[in-house]
Design a protein around this nucleic acid. Structure first.
Length: 553
RNA sequence: GCCCCGAUAGCUCAGCUGGAUAGAGCGUCCCCCUCCUAAGGGGAAGGCCGCAGGUUCGAAUCCUGCUCGGGGCGCCA
């Protein structure tokens, strides 16, 4: 993942010139880095605009507009023919109008990066562990899990593309009282009896019972394990069909079994010993407590009950310690909104184990409401009539499901409009983006592979660009920064927003600029090249979301 | 009571580590297929950015306090 050479990345050239210019007029060097360099809302404000003069004003003294003028002169001297002109505007903005030559050089840099365009930008690559979904294997995945799965997976894809090393992990809660309850429910079904009040009521329980020959007569413990194995496999298949595959399926049960790597000790005992060494636990009223209150939690938490049983929290800590000992730079947990109450104790546990909470990310997913014909259908898990991931996919397809679950920020509740998601038309944003990709493919197909190859090898110097072409090139250039933002802010929805914008910008270009058969020296070459770059960027964006990029529709 | 999330166009939501005249999709209304995919495009209407203070040259964005909505606060998992 070699990053795009700084010398040829046009935005880096601009940034560098801006930094130098700021320094030349008296800045301390940092001002140039803090200054914005962004696409203004209006075209007559130039290709890019910077607030550098307003930041310099308090440092060097004097009216911002005067300073902007000086910075402009410095920039012009440094950028020469790449910069057509500058304008000082408003309270002291400096608007930059870049030349055709700059735009074509930018396009060339995008094409040179090829499939890697936008990726590999992580300044400090890290080894990341992303735990997500981790739904109890006592029932099928529902729509909330689907959001969690889509988010965790897209985030992982973005991290990897950005240059990090990612391990996707699913924690299987195959231990504890809910497994016994599942076993009892399965056995009841196998015997043709009613499931107990506090048991699992769904139809899938009968399916599990049917799949285990001796379910009616087996001991509860092995029956529970068998049921969990079947349920876990079903979950794994659902996720795989949804485009989500995990690297590690971590068994909670294994935390309570002897481990060879711990010299025969079990991980929970190992964790207790580790915490004891750090003086993070104490005994009180026959129970073992973690000093979580010292690490930001509301109070201390029990690890071993007075009855001698371990709490689930004990497993969580042992698991967390296991991850730490596997050597990750950062642990990420994608948790459902109903788990936010555990944030404080998880963070406390992390600190108690000697970790720095700056390397722990506890991400909370907000809820999903399904909307059909304008009405909300809440997914009540109790009643057993919740919508499953499989149902959702059967209803609207993987692409639409992933798109609609990912297009909004993870910390806002979303209303997923099933009618709109089912719509196979431009009213549906996911189809709109896919259509743009298919349309580009069609144009390139019409031109022919040889023609496209020739266009990619052509020099574009001297070709005058149409405003729509410039707009598209600049939209594409924003991709690396979008990836960085999406990764750093754990915000895959930014990629969805961006993909839609690229599709819109391409569509405007397509409307205004005939590609195949365009008149003028080198114009068709340039437009084919722009098209290739746009298709690449859309395909990469969709790929990061786990949505397909079809050649034809 | 305490904690988390939200409040932006009729609806669903971007924008939020401060910048110029606040955006998209849907919905509504008008218009456009001799032209590389009309699964498309052009245009219009539509906003005290929840309320009140504060910081700043500048606040949807940052701080404080409220209001409303959603969720969570067990030696359950």
């Amino acid at each position: 993942m070699s990053p795009t050479p700084a010398a040829t990345a046009p935005l880096d050239v601009l940034r560098g010139a801006l930094r130098d210019a700021a320094q030349a007029v008296g800045g301390d060097g940092h001002v140039g880095d803090r200054a914005t360099l962004e696409r203004p809302k209006r075209d007559d404000f130039g290709d890019y605009a910077t607030n550098v003069a307003m930041l310099l004003a308090p440092v060097v003294g004097g009216p911002p507009r005067d300073i902007a003028g000086k910075v402009g002169e410095e920039l012009q001297a440094r950028l020469g023919p790449l910069l057509d002109r500058v304008e000082v505007a408003g309270p002291g903005f400096l608007n930059l109008f870049l030349s055709d030559a700059w735009h074509t050089a930018a396009l060339t840099s995008v094409l040179a990066a090829g499939e890697r365009f936008g990726g590999g930008g992580a300044e400090q690559p890290e080894r990341l562990n992303v735990e997500f979904v981790s739904a109890n294997p006592t029932g099928p995945l529902h729509v909330g899990h689907a959001r969690n799965a889509a988010y965790g997976d897209a985030l992982s894809r973005i991290f990897a593309f950005h240059g990090h090393e990612v391990v996707r992990e699913y924690y299987v809660n195959d231990f504890g009282s809910q497994i016994a309850r599942l076993a009892e429910s399965v056995r009841a079904r196998a015997r043709g009896e009613e499931v107990a009040e506090d048991g699992y009521q769904g139809d899938y329980v009968q399916a599990i019972a049917n799949a285990i020959p001796d379910a009616a007569t087996m001991e509860l413990d092995p029956l529970g394990q068998k049921a969990v194995a079947l349920m876990t496999e079903r979950i794994r298949e659902s996720l795989h069909f949804f485009g989500v595959d995990f690297d590690v399926w971590f068994s909670e049960r294994s935390l309570h079994e002897p481990s060879a790597s711990l010299g025969g000790q079990d991980p929970v005992t190992h964790a207790f010993a580790t915490l004891a060494d750090l003086d993070q636990t104490y005994a009180h009223e026959d129970a073992l407590w973690l000093r979580s209150g010292q690490h930001g939690d509301d109070k201390d938490r029990v690890l071993v009950r007075s009855s001698g049983e371990h709490t689930y929290f004990a497993s969580d800590i042992a698991y967390m310690l296991d991850k730490r000992e596997r050597g990750f730079d950062r642990l990420l947990y994608v948790l459902g909104a109903d788990h936010h109450g555990y944030r404080a104790r998880m963070a406390a546990a992390y600190e108690a184990l000697g970790g720095d909470v700056a390397s722990l990310d506890l991400l909370i997913m907000q809820f999903v409401h399904l909307v059909e014909r304008g009405e909300r259908s809440s997914m009540s898990k109790r009643s057993g009539e919740f919508v499953t991931l499989d149902d959702l996919v059967a209803e609207i397809g993987v692409d639409a499901a992933r798109w609609f679950l990912l297009q909004r920020s993870h910390d806002t509740t979303i209303d997923l409009d099933l009618d709109l998601a089912r719509e196979e038309s431009a009213e549906n944003p996911v189809y709109y983006v896919q259509y743009a990709h298919a349309r580009i493919s069609s144009v390139l197909d019409k031109a022919g592979a040889d023609r496209v190859a020739a266009a990619l090898g052509a020099e574009h110097a001297g070709v005058a660009l149409h405003p729509a072409e410039k707009a598209l090139v600049k939209k594409l250039l924003a991709f690396p920064a979008e990836i960085a933002e999406a990764a750093e802010r754990r915000a895959p929805h930014r990629i969805a927003t961006y993909a839609l914008e690229v599709a819109q910008t391409f569509t405007a270009f397509y409307r205004d600029c005939q590609v195949v058969g365009a008149e003028g020296e080198g114009v068709e070459d340039l437009r084919l090249a722009v098209s290739v770059a746009a298709r690449q960027t859309i395909a990469t964006s969709l790929g990061l979301l786990g949505v397909t990029a079809p050649e034809t529709m």
